[in-house]
Nucleic acid binder design. Structure first.
Lengths: 137, 137
DNA sequence: CTTGACCTTCCAGTGCACTGGAAGGTCTAG
DNA sequence: CTAGACCTTCCAGTGCACTGGAAGGTCAAG
Protein backbone atom coordinates (compact mmCIF):
# COMPACT_ATOMS: atom_id res chain seq x y z
CA UNK A 1 0.00 0.00 0.00
CA UNK A 2 1.42 3.39 -0.92
CA UNK A 3 1.24 6.44 1.29
CA UNK A 4 -1.75 7.91 -0.58
CA UNK A 5 -3.80 4.76 0.02
CA UNK A 6 -2.85 4.73 3.66
CA UNK A 7 -3.82 8.37 3.90
CA UNK A 8 -7.21 7.68 2.35
CA UNK A 9 -7.75 4.68 4.60
CA UNK A 10 -6.77 6.50 7.79
CA UNK A 11 -8.30 9.85 7.01
CA UNK A 12 -4.97 11.63 7.36
CA UNK A 13 -2.89 13.45 4.76
CA UNK A 14 0.32 12.08 3.30
CA UNK A 15 2.04 15.02 4.91
CA UNK A 16 0.82 14.02 8.33
CA UNK A 17 1.85 10.40 7.83
CA UNK A 18 5.40 11.38 6.89
CA UNK A 19 5.41 13.72 9.85
CA UNK A 20 4.36 10.89 12.17
CA UNK A 21 7.11 8.73 10.75
CA UNK A 22 9.64 11.45 11.35
CA UNK A 23 8.24 11.90 14.84
CA UNK A 24 8.82 8.22 15.60
CA UNK A 25 5.17 7.21 15.78
CA UNK A 26 5.19 5.05 12.68
CA UNK A 27 8.18 2.84 11.83
CA UNK A 28 9.93 3.48 8.53
CA UNK A 29 8.24 1.18 6.05
CA UNK A 30 10.09 -0.78 3.37
CA UNK A 31 10.46 0.94 0.02
CA UNK A 32 9.55 -0.18 -3.47
CA UNK A 33 12.20 -0.29 -6.19
CA UNK A 34 11.23 3.25 -7.08
CA UNK A 35 11.74 4.48 -3.55
CA UNK A 36 8.05 4.69 -2.59
CA UNK A 37 6.98 3.83 0.93
CA UNK A 38 5.23 0.46 1.00
CA UNK A 39 2.88 0.04 3.94
CA UNK A 40 1.28 -3.05 5.42
CA UNK A 41 -2.20 -3.12 6.97
CA UNK A 42 -0.57 -2.94 10.36
CA UNK A 43 0.33 0.67 9.64
CA UNK A 44 -3.36 1.57 9.36
CA UNK A 45 -4.03 -0.07 12.73
CA UNK A 46 -1.19 1.87 14.23
CA UNK A 47 -2.45 5.15 12.86
CA UNK A 48 -5.89 4.35 14.19
CA UNK A 49 -4.34 3.81 17.60
CA UNK A 50 -2.50 7.09 17.37
CA UNK A 51 -5.67 9.00 16.55
CA UNK A 52 -7.51 7.21 19.28
CA UNK A 53 -4.89 8.08 21.85
CA UNK A 54 -4.72 11.60 20.54
CA UNK A 55 -8.42 12.17 20.90
CA UNK A 56 -7.93 11.08 24.50
CA UNK A 57 -5.81 14.16 24.92
CA UNK A 58 -2.42 12.45 24.88
CA UNK A 59 0.32 14.38 23.17
CA UNK A 60 2.30 12.83 20.35
CA UNK A 61 5.26 12.57 22.72
CA UNK A 62 3.19 10.55 25.18
CA UNK A 63 1.84 8.36 22.43
CA UNK A 64 5.34 7.81 21.15
CA UNK A 65 6.58 6.69 24.53
CA UNK A 66 3.60 4.38 24.90
CA UNK A 67 4.16 2.89 21.46
CA UNK A 68 7.88 2.55 22.00
CA UNK A 69 7.20 0.63 25.16
CA UNK A 70 4.64 -1.56 23.47
CA UNK A 71 6.93 -2.18 20.54
CA UNK A 72 10.04 -3.06 22.46
CA UNK A 73 8.49 -6.42 23.27
CA UNK A 74 10.69 -7.00 26.29
CA UNK A 75 8.82 -4.41 28.24
CA UNK A 76 7.53 -5.05 31.71
CA UNK A 77 3.84 -5.20 30.92
CA UNK A 78 3.26 -3.84 34.40
CA UNK A 79 4.77 -0.57 33.28
CA UNK A 80 2.49 -0.46 30.28
CA UNK A 81 -0.41 -1.05 32.62
CA UNK A 82 0.77 1.79 34.80
CA UNK A 83 0.98 4.14 31.85
CA UNK A 84 -2.47 3.20 30.69
CA UNK A 85 -3.83 3.64 34.18
CA UNK A 86 -2.27 7.06 34.41
CA UNK A 87 -3.88 8.12 31.20
CA UNK A 88 -7.18 6.65 32.28
CA UNK A 89 -6.97 8.81 35.37
CA UNK A 90 -6.30 11.84 33.18
CA UNK A 91 -9.32 11.04 31.09
CA UNK A 92 -11.49 10.69 34.17
CA UNK A 93 -10.26 14.08 35.26
CA UNK A 94 -11.08 15.65 31.91
CA UNK A 95 -14.49 14.04 32.01
CA UNK A 96 -15.12 15.58 35.40
CA UNK A 97 -14.01 19.00 34.16
CA UNK A 98 -16.16 18.77 31.08
CA UNK A 99 -19.20 17.81 33.11
CA UNK A 100 -18.58 20.78 35.39
CA UNK A 101 -18.37 23.10 32.42
CA UNK A 102 -21.48 21.60 30.93
CA UNK A 103 -23.25 22.34 34.17
CA UNK A 104 -22.05 25.94 34.02
CA UNK A 105 -23.07 26.38 30.41
CA UNK A 106 -26.47 24.88 31.12
CA UNK A 107 -26.98 27.35 33.91
CA UNK A 108 -25.96 30.06 31.51
CA UNK A 109 -28.37 28.77 28.89
CA UNK A 110 -31.21 28.64 31.38
CA UNK A 111 -30.53 32.19 32.44
CA UNK A 112 -30.37 33.29 28.82
CA UNK A 113 -33.70 31.65 28.11
CA UNK A 114 -35.44 33.54 30.91
CA UNK A 115 -33.70 36.83 30.24
CA UNK A 116 -35.57 39.63 28.62
CA UNK A 117 -33.46 41.54 26.09
CA UNK A 118 -34.91 44.71 27.54
CA UNK A 119 -33.47 43.82 30.90
CA UNK A 120 -30.08 43.34 29.26
CA UNK A 121 -30.32 46.80 27.79
CA UNK A 122 -31.03 48.35 31.19
CA UNK A 123 -27.99 46.98 32.89
CA UNK A 124 -24.86 48.00 31.04
CA UNK A 125 -23.98 44.42 30.43
CA UNK A 126 -26.04 41.48 29.35
CA UNK A 127 -27.20 40.00 32.65
CA UNK A 128 -26.34 36.52 31.51
CA UNK A 129 -22.72 36.99 32.44
CA UNK A 130 -23.35 38.02 35.97
CA UNK A 131 -22.26 36.38 39.16
CA UNK A 132 -21.71 32.83 38.05
CA UNK A 133 -22.52 29.79 40.14
CA UNK A 134 -18.95 28.70 39.53
CA UNK A 135 -17.51 27.08 42.58
CA UNK A 136 -13.97 28.41 42.86
CA UNK A 137 -11.45 25.62 42.26
CA UNK B 1 -6.46 45.60 42.61
CA UNK B 2 -3.18 45.46 40.74
CA UNK B 3 -2.28 42.89 38.15
CA UNK B 4 -0.22 40.79 40.56
CA UNK B 5 -3.16 40.47 42.95
CA UNK B 6 -5.45 39.53 40.12
CA UNK B 7 -2.92 36.96 38.96
CA UNK B 8 -2.72 35.43 42.42
CA UNK B 9 -6.49 35.42 42.72
CA UNK B 10 -7.09 33.83 39.34
CA UNK B 11 -4.17 31.46 39.30
CA UNK B 12 -2.76 32.99 36.12
CA UNK B 13 0.46 34.89 35.55
CA UNK B 14 0.61 38.64 34.99
CA UNK B 15 1.95 37.82 31.54
CA UNK B 16 -1.10 35.80 30.69
CA UNK B 17 -3.43 38.49 31.96
CA UNK B 18 -1.79 41.14 29.77
CA UNK B 19 -1.91 38.70 26.92
CA UNK B 20 -5.64 38.19 27.46
CA UNK B 21 -6.15 41.93 27.48
CA UNK B 22 -4.26 42.28 24.24
CA UNK B 23 -6.30 39.40 22.83
CA UNK B 24 -9.52 41.22 23.62
CA UNK B 25 -10.70 38.86 26.34
CA UNK B 26 -10.34 41.30 29.17
CA UNK B 27 -11.24 44.98 28.78
CA UNK B 28 -8.50 47.52 29.36
CA UNK B 29 -8.78 48.46 33.02
CA UNK B 30 -8.42 52.00 34.32
CA UNK B 31 -4.93 53.02 35.36
CA UNK B 32 -3.63 54.44 38.61
CA UNK B 33 -1.76 57.73 38.59
CA UNK B 34 1.44 55.76 38.18
CA UNK B 35 0.16 53.94 35.13
CA UNK B 36 -0.58 50.64 36.86
CA UNK B 37 -3.58 48.62 35.77
CA UNK B 38 -6.32 48.84 38.38
CA UNK B 39 -8.75 45.93 38.31
CA UNK B 40 -12.16 45.46 39.83
CA UNK B 41 -13.49 42.17 41.18
CA UNK B 42 -15.40 41.77 37.95
CA UNK B 43 -12.12 41.08 36.20
CA UNK B 44 -11.56 38.02 38.37
CA UNK B 45 -15.02 36.72 37.48
CA UNK B 46 -14.29 37.28 33.84
CA UNK B 47 -11.02 35.41 34.02
CA UNK B 48 -12.78 32.57 35.78
CA UNK B 49 -15.26 32.47 32.94
CA UNK B 50 -12.45 32.40 30.39
CA UNK B 51 -10.73 29.49 32.10
CA UNK B 52 -14.02 27.70 32.44
CA UNK B 53 -14.81 28.09 28.78
CA UNK B 54 -11.27 27.18 27.86
CA UNK B 55 -11.36 23.95 29.79
CA UNK B 56 -14.48 23.16 27.79
CA UNK B 57 -12.26 23.13 24.74
CA UNK B 58 -13.24 26.53 23.36
CA UNK B 59 -10.43 28.48 21.73
CA UNK B 60 -9.62 31.98 22.90
CA UNK B 61 -11.12 33.26 19.64
CA UNK B 62 -14.42 31.53 20.38
CA UNK B 63 -14.41 32.78 23.92
CA UNK B 64 -13.70 36.28 22.70
CA UNK B 65 -16.65 36.23 20.32
CA UNK B 66 -18.88 34.88 23.08
CA UNK B 67 -17.73 37.59 25.48
CA UNK B 68 -18.02 40.30 22.87
CA UNK B 69 -21.60 39.28 22.27
CA UNK B 70 -22.36 39.14 25.95
CA UNK B 71 -20.71 42.50 26.51
CA UNK B 72 -22.36 44.42 23.73
CA UNK B 73 -25.52 44.57 25.84
CA UNK B 74 -27.79 45.15 22.87
CA UNK B 75 -27.29 41.59 21.73
CA UNK B 76 -30.19 39.42 20.76
CA UNK B 77 -30.17 37.09 23.72
CA UNK B 78 -31.48 34.44 21.35
CA UNK B 79 -28.15 34.52 19.59
CA UNK B 80 -26.30 34.10 22.85
CA UNK B 81 -28.51 31.15 23.58
CA UNK B 82 -27.71 29.69 20.19
CA UNK B 83 -23.97 30.08 20.77
CA UNK B 84 -24.21 28.47 24.16
CA UNK B 85 -26.25 25.63 22.73
CA UNK B 86 -23.68 25.11 20.03
CA UNK B 87 -20.91 24.88 22.56
CA UNK B 88 -22.99 22.58 24.70
CA UNK B 89 -23.33 20.29 21.70
CA UNK B 90 -19.57 20.40 21.22
CA UNK B 91 -19.06 19.46 24.83
CA UNK B 92 -21.48 16.57 24.53
CA UNK B 93 -19.52 15.42 21.51
CA UNK B 94 -16.22 15.62 23.36
CA UNK B 95 -17.75 13.73 26.26
CA UNK B 96 -18.83 10.99 23.87
CA UNK B 97 -15.35 10.80 22.36
CA UNK B 98 -13.68 10.69 25.73
CA UNK B 99 -15.96 7.91 26.91
CA UNK B 100 -15.15 5.93 23.77
CA UNK B 101 -11.45 6.39 24.36
CA UNK B 102 -11.84 5.42 27.96
CA UNK B 103 -13.51 2.22 26.80
CA UNK B 104 -10.59 1.54 24.46
CA UNK B 105 -7.99 2.20 27.12
CA UNK B 106 -9.85 0.00 29.59
CA UNK B 107 -9.83 -2.83 27.09
CA UNK B 108 -6.14 -2.23 26.65
CA UNK B 109 -5.59 -2.24 30.39
CA UNK B 110 -7.55 -5.46 30.79
CA UNK B 111 -5.49 -7.07 28.08
CA UNK B 112 -2.28 -5.84 29.64
CA UNK B 113 -3.32 -7.29 32.99
CA UNK B 114 -3.87 -10.75 31.55
CA UNK B 115 -0.83 -10.68 29.31
CA UNK B 116 2.23 -12.64 30.27
CA UNK B 117 5.48 -10.79 29.50
CA UNK B 118 6.80 -14.09 28.13
CA UNK B 119 4.01 -14.10 25.58
CA UNK B 120 4.97 -10.61 24.53
CA UNK B 121 8.52 -11.76 24.00
CA UNK B 122 7.39 -14.59 21.75
CA UNK B 123 5.49 -12.49 19.30
CA UNK B 124 7.70 -9.76 17.90
CA UNK B 125 5.43 -7.14 19.32
CA UNK B 126 3.78 -6.79 22.67
CA UNK B 127 0.43 -8.47 22.17
CA UNK B 128 -1.36 -5.65 23.86
CA UNK B 129 -1.33 -3.61 20.70
CA UNK B 130 -3.03 -6.19 18.56
CA UNK B 131 -6.29 -6.02 16.70
CA UNK B 132 -8.17 -3.43 18.68
CA UNK B 133 -11.87 -3.52 19.36
CA UNK B 134 -11.99 -0.05 17.92
CA UNK B 135 -15.14 0.49 15.91
CA UNK B 136 -14.01 2.39 12.84
CA UNK B 137 -15.46 5.93 12.90
C1' DC C 1 7.31 9.32 -25.75
C1' DT C 2 4.51 12.27 -23.25
C1' DT C 3 1.07 13.42 -19.86
C1' DG C 4 -0.64 13.29 -15.34
C1' DA C 5 -1.14 11.34 -10.98
C1' DC C 6 1.50 10.20 -7.39
C1' DC C 7 5.65 9.93 -5.04
C1' DT C 8 10.44 11.76 -2.98
C1' DT C 9 13.26 15.15 0.16
C1' DC C 10 13.99 19.41 2.40
C1' DC C 11 13.02 23.52 4.45
C1' DA C 12 10.16 27.01 5.85
C1' DG C 13 5.73 28.78 7.64
C1' DT C 14 1.26 28.64 10.36
C1' DG C 15 -1.86 28.99 14.41
C1' DC C 16 -2.51 28.68 19.06
C1' DA C 17 -1.50 29.93 23.69
C1' DC C 18 1.50 31.49 25.99
C1' DT C 19 6.52 32.74 27.98
C1' DG C 20 10.95 35.19 28.56
C1' DG C 21 13.78 39.03 28.75
C1' DA C 22 15.36 43.73 28.24
C1' DA C 23 14.98 48.45 29.65
C1' DG C 24 12.89 51.34 32.41
C1' DG C 25 9.11 53.57 35.75
C1' DT C 26 6.53 53.53 40.59
C1' DC C 27 5.80 52.92 45.27
C1' DT C 28 6.61 51.61 50.10
C1' DA C 29 9.68 50.53 54.10
C1' DG C 30 13.67 51.54 56.50
C1' DC D 1 17.70 58.51 49.83
C1' DT D 2 17.94 53.89 48.61
C1' DA D 3 16.69 49.09 48.13
C1' DG D 4 13.44 46.00 46.60
C1' DA D 5 9.13 44.55 45.05
C1' DC D 6 6.17 45.37 41.60
C1' DC D 7 4.74 47.53 37.57
C1' DT D 8 5.22 49.31 32.37
C1' DT D 9 6.02 48.40 27.10
C1' DC D 10 7.93 45.92 23.37
C1' DC D 11 9.67 42.33 20.92
C1' DA D 12 11.21 37.86 20.38
C1' DG D 13 11.01 32.86 21.36
C1' DT D 14 8.74 28.32 22.63
C1' DG D 15 6.16 23.95 21.97
C1' DC D 16 2.88 21.49 19.67
C1' DA D 17 0.91 19.60 15.57
C1' DC D 18 0.86 20.13 11.53
C1' DT D 19 0.94 22.47 6.50
C1' DG D 20 2.80 24.46 2.20
C1' DG D 21 5.78 24.72 -1.49
C1' DA D 22 9.81 23.96 -4.34
C1' DA D 23 12.38 20.82 -7.17
C1' DG D 24 12.57 16.65 -8.84
C1' DG D 25 11.74 11.21 -9.48
C1' DT D 26 8.35 7.06 -10.79
C1' DC D 27 4.96 4.78 -13.21
C1' DA D 28 0.70 3.35 -15.85
C1' DA D 29 -2.30 4.86 -19.68
C1' DG D 30 -2.73 6.59 -24.22
Amino acid sequence: MRIGDLAARSGLTTKTIRFYEQAGLLPEPPRTAGGYRDYSDEAAARLAFVREAQSAGLTLAEIRSLLTLLDSGQVPCAQVTRLIDEHLAEIEERLRELRQTRRTLRTLAARAATTDPAECAEAGVCTILGPMPTPAP
